[in-house]
C-alpha cells in the first residue's frame, strides 16, 4: 500500500512537471515571431511605416516603397505629370486604374448624399489647411468654387475620363487607403511574407499571421485630443483600418478650429459633432473613404452606409463619448 502511494506520488509529480513545462513551451512558441524587418520613410507626403515578417524583409520593404511612390505619381494632383493633374487641367485621360478608383469614389459620393466628393479640390485649395497659406476664405469665394463641385461632373466612358466643369480632383481622402490596397495585393502575391502591418500615413493594412500561432494584429487608435494617447486597441486578423479626425491638420482662428475634412455640400469643415472616426473593412480605399464620409455625416447617418459596405466604425464625438457601430474587436484603454 505504501509503495502504491509512493508510485502515485511520483506519477502525480511527473504529470505536474510535464504540464508546467509544456505550458511554458506553448506560450514561448506563441510569442516567437518570424524574421522581421522594419522601415520608416516618407512617401505619398506622409510617413510610411513597414513591419514585415519574412526571411527577406528588406526586399519586400523596397518593393512596397516603390509601389507607393509609383501610385503617388499617378494620383497626386501636386505631381505635374500625373494623370490626375492632367485631368484637372481640362484634358481627357485614359487610365484604367484611375477609372476604377473614380468609379468607387462616385459610388460613395452617391451613397453619402454628396457629403463625400473628390471633386472638391478647388475648395480645398482655398482653405489650404496644413499649408503655409492656410486661411478662412470669404463666403463668396467658397460659393463660387462650390458651384463647380459635384461628382456628376466626372465623366467616364469610351476608355477615357474627363471633367465637365472647372472642378478639380483631390484624391487625398482615399489615396492612403488605396496604397494599402496595392500593398495588400503585393503581399498576397508573394510566397515568403508570413505577416505584415504597413501604415501609410496612419491608414493601416494588416496581412498574414502575427506570429506562428496566428495571434491577431493589434492596431492602436490615436486619441483625438492627446497626441501621445490612445483610445484603445483594435485586434484583427487581416484587413484595413483608417481614421479621419479633426486633429491631424487644422488651424485655429478667433478660438475656432478649422480642420481639413471639408463637407462638399457646404464647402466648410464638417461639423457633425464627430471628432474622430475609425473604420475597419476589407478594402483600403473603402476604409479611407468611409472614414471621411462618416466623419462628415455623423454617427446616425453613417449607419446605413457602413452596413452597405459591411464595414464597422468607432466614433468619438465632441464630448469624448466613444461608440462602436458594427463588429470590431476593440479594447478601450
Amino acid at each position: 500500500m505504501k509503495n502504491k502511494t509512493k508510485i502515485l506520488k511520483i506519477s502525480l509529480s511527473v504529470f505536474l512537471v510535464s504540464v508546467l513545462i509544456l505550458t511554458a513551451l506553448f506560450f514561448s512558441e506563441r510569442s516567437k515571431r518570424f524574421e522581421y524587418g522594419e522601415k520608416n520613410t516618407v512617401a505619398m507626403g506622409t510617413i510610411l511605416t513597414q513591419k514585415i515578417y519574412s526571411d527577406n524583409p528588406a526586399n519586400h520593404i523596397s518593393h512596397i516603397t516603390s509601389i507607393v511612390n509609383s501610385l503617388e505619381s499617378t494620383i497626386s494632383w501636386r505631381e505635374d505629370a500625373s494623370p490626375v493633374s492632367s485631368l484637372n487641367k481640362g484634358n481627357s485621360v485614359s487610365d484604367t486604374a484611375l477609372s476604377g478608383v473614380l468609379f468607387s469614389c462616385i459610388e460613395i459620393s452617391e451613397e453619402s448624399g454628396g457629403a463625400f466628393d473628390v471633386t472638391i479640390g478647388e475648395v480645398s485649395k482655398l482653405w489650404s489647411i496644413g499649408e503655409e497659406n492656410e486661411r478662412v476664405p470669404a463666403q463668396a469665394e467658397i460659393e463660387a468654387e462650390l458651384g463647380n463641385v459635384g461628382y456628376e461632373n466626372i465623366i467616364i466612358g469610351n476608355g477615357e475620363i474627363s471633367l465637365s466643369s472647372d472642378c478639380s480632383i483631390d484624391l487625398g481622402a482615399v489615396g492612403k487607403g488605396l496604397a494599402c490596397d496595392y500593398i495588400m495585393n503585393y503581399l498576397k502575391a508573394t510566397d515568403d511574407v508570413n505577416g505584415a502591418v504597413v501604415s501609410v500615413g496612419g491608414s493601416n493594412v494588416a496581412y498574414g499571421d502575427y506570429n506562428k500561432a496566428g495571434d491577431k494584429w493589434r492596431i492602436a487608435v490615436r486619441h483625438p485630443r492627446n497626441e501621445n494617447g490612445y483610445l484603445g486597441v483594435i485586434s484583427l486578423d487581416e484587413g484595413f483600418v483608417s481614421t479621419s479626425g479633426d486633429y491631424e491638420k487644422y488651424f485655429e482662428e478667433d478660438g475656432k478650429r478649422y480642420h481639413h475634412i471639408l463637407d462638399a455640400n457646404t464647402g466648410y469643415p464638417a461639423s457633425s459633432g464627430i471628432i474622430s472616426v475609425t473604420v475597419v473593412c476589407d478594402s483600403g480605399l473603402l476604409s479611407d473613404a468611409l472614414s471621411t464620409a462618416c466623419f462628415i455625416l455623423g454617427e446616425e447617418e453613417s449607419k446605413a452606409l457602413l452596413e452597405k459596405y459591411n464595414a464597422s466604425a468607432i466614433f468619438v464625438n465632441d464630448n469624448m463619448e466613444i461608440s462602436v457601430v458594427g463588429e470590431i474587436d476593440f479594447e478601450a484603454y
Binding site: V198, I219, A220, R222, V233
Partner: peptide
C-alpha cells in the same frame, strides 16, 4: 509595445 501599429 502593446500594439503593432497606430491608426490616425
Amino acid at each position: 509595445a502593446d500594439f503593432d501599429s497606430v491608426v490616425y
